[in-house]
Design a protein around this nucleic acid. Structure first.
Length: 883
DNA sequence: GATTCCCGCCAAAGA
DNA sequence: TCTTTGGCGGGAATC
């Protein structure tokens, strides 16, 4: 039926422009283009009021109106049936009613809250456009016009559009103008989101949160505040890079503004929310859990209840829109604590990438997550080396893949960073870039036209890179290299891994990349999501690190661990000792209770602040919100100093190569205090994020195919940035980063990445000079910070530059230019687009028509497969999910 | 009392 | 400087 609408799309903006959105109060249903085919493009929407005036309100109409007002369901049903013929009449009705009814009566006739709901508004909005519009037609959307037509504030339209944009159903064309794509890109987007979610181990996070809840309920009576949850969650997310936004090639954001506030934007939240569904089994997600996960990514600043409430509000907004899209529906999950509002995914099933299934063959298992007892194991294919090797090309490609994306998220922290390293960047940037995204949403569909241009850009970039590469630069030696973060971890983990191997295979989660360090850094790092070979190409941007993010979130994590229950469970594992130790190194600093930290002074400061904060939060949750705010502010201020330091070291806003994730995951595991103990081979309880805990024996585990943790192997595009893994930002990393003078972030990143990938020997360093050619398109790309030292887990962060880098063409990766400093200058949209597409292309994946250099590398692109085993610690409670 | 979520203030970003 | 965007949270409608 939706198809029916195809080709019926009318260009709203051509129908009369309403510069100023009408007041919501006057809102009434307006005729939609679809419903009024008569409307020519140039047709001027009838003005209800005008029409109404002078027209007698018939008793029948009056009755109709009253019924409609009194019974939203009826009205809604009428709308759905397309029988809302009175749409035009409604305004009249209002006026008439106003005249005929007394004040109270009139008020009653006013649209109820439900009628003004965002969901209903979204339905109206959607009615205006065909689900599958003819792309050849002009599908522009003028927000003002829509707002006017729907008689709502433009603000509300933004809410809808932002969510739709997160699904790439619309894309911003220009100020006040969007392009309607309908559902053409929906599946692709969902696929990308799912892959991203897997990489981010959202399923695991959900599970952990649930687990913690259970623990709190049963293990100790002391109530835990939201803050506690959040903090713990944070820990659980170790190192998980915050995903800013998943873009599809050609669908990049156009407005820098869009990126500026990205980290908290409705778009990002919407994507994350959707991701939760895509990786959950059953696909039901409660708002509470979703909020916690989302907040967790925002770190310290979001630890108070007010933030939680705000998040919930936003989730409702998003949920309403998604409901209107028929992607989710509201349900309730009943748990020990009572019913919780939740939403169930009713949208299209997104099948895992075919390639994902391959992964499981031989893998090296590393306890991925220390989080409370559940220690998921990240498995890497034995062919990892090969992957790395091949990754060279990918690496180069990845490093520059982002070139094309001028509009990466740019976080404030980035701005700071940018300033601090501005001088460096100047050297680097030469390429002209425009902040504006040239690509239209449609571009994704019509990339061909850009191919040649993109190819040119790629060539240019390549040249520039080569030039740069020739330049010797100071390099920061990053020992991340081959062993990468994993190395240090490996020894410790070995025993655990063995166990895991025995039991875990079945439980593996498809989290290929697990950037899981809870480190705040992660949030700061922009990540490039590896795309499944078969999956649609997409880029994920890590959320720019907040100042807070820079500080080790782990500080919080320790807290989590400290919980009695968690400790008990964790300690059980023999591996714990080792892992914990490692974790301590990383986490301690952050631990509120542990003053002594390995962190450098700045870090400590931050840690202290954090600790203070954490202590305050936990100890005296009661602190008023105001206090929290004040303290937070103070904390932020305190962090500023740190931020400057860390910022430079850990620029945020990069794309992180997922391929690196494994290592990260390993690190995260180590860093996480909880992980090791969690897995007991013999008897485990599996808890599905959604469903709750299911006791499973090891044998069961192996034999059982967990729906919730389907093992999917995914190919990671070897992103140039091993750094990505770095982001994992374990606190140690931060520390190290500070300690290490990174003169040239890019160089460090490159080295790190290469080493990490095994492309170059640890000792070898490649100088990456950000060349003008590299043109880090987006400012977001920043220097990479590496944390070589402590624990060996380094968390370097690679920042991704948006510059289209021909680098991918260079197998060696030497030429890879990583600009530590990015030029603020945005890359030309075209270039960016090109980059993006090619960048994400996996060999198996959609072939890129464009002959851009990127493609070359693609062919070679390797993906590292990562499997995450998530053996569950025994949870005694199971959640009941409403379906 | 809890859940939903509308509403619009106001600041950031853009033109 | 004005406009566009959109984060945010008060508080009211509903449950």
């Amino acid at each position: 039926m939706e198809d029916e609408k195809e080709n019926l799309f009318f260009e709203p903006h051509k129908r009369g422009l309403m510069k100023t959105p009408l007041k919501a109060s006057t809102a009434v249903n307006l005729p939609l283009p679809e419903s009024q085919p008569d409307f020519g493009p140039l047709t001027t929407p009838t003005k209800p009021k005008e029409i109404a005036q002078g027209e007698p309100w018939t008793p029948t109409a009056n009755l109709k109106m009253l019924i409609s007002a009194a019974s939203p369901e009826i009205r809604s049903r009428d709308e759905k049936r397309g029988l809302f013929d009175n749409r035009n009449e409604l305004p009249e009705a209002k006026d008439s009613l106003h005249e005929h009814l007394s004040g109270d009566e009139y008020e009653k006739s006013q649209p109820s809250r439900k009628e003004k709901s965002l969901g209903l508004l979204c339905l109206k909005f959607l009615e205006r456009y065909p689900k599958y519009p003819n792309l050849a037609l002009n599908n522009d959307i003028c927000l003002d016009e829509v707002a006017g037509d729907l008689k709502v504030e433009r603000r509300r339209i933004y809410d809808i559009v932002n969510v739709l944009e997160s699904l790439h159903m619309v894309s911003r064309l220009a100020k006040n103008r969007y392009t309607w794509h309908g559902r053409h890109n929906l599946n692709q987007t969902l696929q990308a989101l799912k892959s991203t979610a897997e990489k981010n181990r959202y399923a695991k996070q959900i599970m952990m949160i649930k687990k913690k809840e259970y623990e709190q309920e049963f293990d100790f009576t002391k109530g835990c505040s939201i803050e506690d949850h959040i903090i713990k969650d944070d820990t659980g997310q170790n190192g998980q890079p915050d995903v800013c936004f998943v873009e599809l090639p050609g669908m990049e954001f156009r407005a820098a503004s869009v990126n500026s506030r990205k980290e908290k934007s409705l778009r990002v939240m919407s994507q994350k929310f959707v991701m939760l569904f895509l990786v959950s089994t059953p696909q039901i997600v409660s708002l509470e859990i979703a909020a916690k996960i989302l907040i967790g990514e925002d770190h310290v600043e979001d630890l108070d209840k007010s933030k939680f409430k705000t998040k919930i509000r936003r989730l409702y907004d998003i949920a309403n829109v998604l409901s209107s899209l028929k992607l989710i529906k509201k349900v309730h999950v009943t748990e020990e604590r009572g019913r919780k509002p939740a939403f169930k995914w009713i949208g299209p099933e997104i099948s895992p990438n075919p390639s994902d299934l391959e992964v499981e063959k031989s893998m090296i298992k590393v306890p991925a997550d220390s989080v409370s007892g559940c220690s998921p194991v990240i498995t890497f294919t034995s062919s990892d080396l090969e992957v790395r090797r091949s990754s060279k090309e990918n690496c180069a490609k990845n490093l520059f893949s982002t070139c094309g994306k001028p509009n990466f998220t740019r976080h404030q922290s980035l701005i700071k960073l940018v300033k601090s390293i501005e001088s460096d960047r100047r050297k680097i940037n030469s390429a002209p870039s425009s902040p504006v995204k040239t690509n239209k949403a449609e571009s994704s569909q019509n990339s061909a036209p850009f191919q040649s241009k993109m190819a040119d850009l790629a060539a240019i970039c390549k040249m520039q890179l080569e030039e740069q590469s020739s330049e010797p630069r100071n390099k920061v030696k990053v020992q991340l290299a081959r062993s990468g973060p994993c190395k240090p971890v490996a020894p410790l983990d070995t025993p655990v891994n063995a166990e895991l191997e025995l039991t875990a295979s079945s439980l593996t989660q498809s989290l290929g990349v697990v950037p899981l360090l809870p480190s705040p850094l992660s949030s700061a790092v922009p990540v490039i999501l590896p795309q499944a070979p078969s999956g649609p190409p997409y880029a994920i941007y890590l959320q720019p690190a907040h100042a807070q993010s820079m500080t080790p979130p782990q500080g919080l994590s320790p807290t989590v661990c400290s919980t009695p229950s968690s400790k008990a469970t964790r300690s059980k594992d023999p591996a714990d000792a080792t892992t914990e130790k490692a974790a301590k190194d990383t986490a301690k600093p952050s631990a509120s209770t542990r003053p002594g930290s390995l962190l450098p002074v700045p870090e400590r400061q931050g840690t202290k602040n954090r600790d203070r904060e954490a202590a305050r939060e936990r100890g005296s949750k009661r602190a008023s919100v105001f206090e929290d705010s004040a303290s937070k502010k103070k904390f932020k201020e305190d962090l500023k100093g740190l931020e400057n330091v860390s910022a430079t070291l850990f620029p945020s806003g990069y794309l992180i190569p997922l391929a690196q994730c494994p290592s990260l995951g390993a690190e995260s595991i180590l860093s996480s205090t909880e992980n090791s103990g969690t897995v007991s081979p013999s008897h485990r309880i599996y808890s599905s994020p959604i469903a709750g805990v299911i006791p499973v024996t090891s044998s069961e585990l192996t034999g059982v195919n967990f729906p919730s943790f389907p093992v999917t192997s995914f190919k990671l595009m070897v992103s140039p940035t091993p750094v990505a893994a770095v982001p994992v930002g374990s606190s140690p990393a931060l520390t190290s980063s500070h300690a290490i003078p990174v003169q040239n972030p890019s160089s460090a990143i490159v080295n790190l990445t290469l080493q990490h990938l095994g492309l170059i020997p640890p000792g070898v360093q490649v100088s990456a000079s950000p060349g003008p050619g590299t043109v880090p398109v987006s400012p977001r790309i920043e220097a990479v910070s590496v944390a070589p030292d402590s624990t060996g887990t380094q968390q370097g962060r690679a920042t991704r530059y948006d510059s289209p880098v021909p680098g991918h063409n260079q197998p060696n990766g030497q030429s890879v230019a990583v600009t530590g400093a990015q030029q603020p200058v945005p890359v030309t949209p075209k270039g960016s687009q090109l980059v993006v597409e090619s960048f994400f292309r996996t060999p198996g994946g959609p072939t890129k028509p464009t002959g851009s250099a990127c493609t070359d590398s693609d062919g070679a692109s390797k993906t590292s497969v990562g499997t995450l085993f998530v053996p569950q610690r025994k949870l005694e409670v199971s959640t009941e999910d409403a379906h």
